[in-house]
């Protein structure tokens, strides 16, 4: 899980063009949206693309988004639970 979260932080910075940040600037449980990293709705779409590109996971139910993208940890848990065998 720790390795996956470290990978996710680097991928989020790359995918979302957050070049002012380093992976260690993003906390495992830090909210990704609004008061946390300040991501917006376009970033949410990019996170969906990231899941598909890097982990071959399609987020088919939009209602799952807020829970899945709450933090790096919740993303890692979702990937672990849904990664294709």
């Amino acid at each position: 899980m720790e390795k996956l979260m470290a990978d996710l932080k680097a991928q989020i910075i790359q995918q979302l063009n957050l070049k002012h940040l380093k992976p260690e600037d993003i906390g495992d449980d830090q909210p990704l949206f609004v008061e946390g990293l300040g991501l917006d709705s376009i970033d949410a779409l990019e996170l969906i693309v990231l899941l598909q590109q890097e982990y071959n996971i399609k987020l088919t139910n939009a209602d799952d988004g807020p829970k899945v993208f709450q933090s790096v940890r919740t993303m890692a848990e979702y990937i672990t639970a849904n990664k294709p065998a």
Partner: peptide, 9 residues
């Protein structure tokens, strides 16, 4: 590959 929403805007 997969169209980028962030670039599209």
């Amino acid at each position: 590959d997969i169209a980028s929403p962030a670039l599209f805007v």
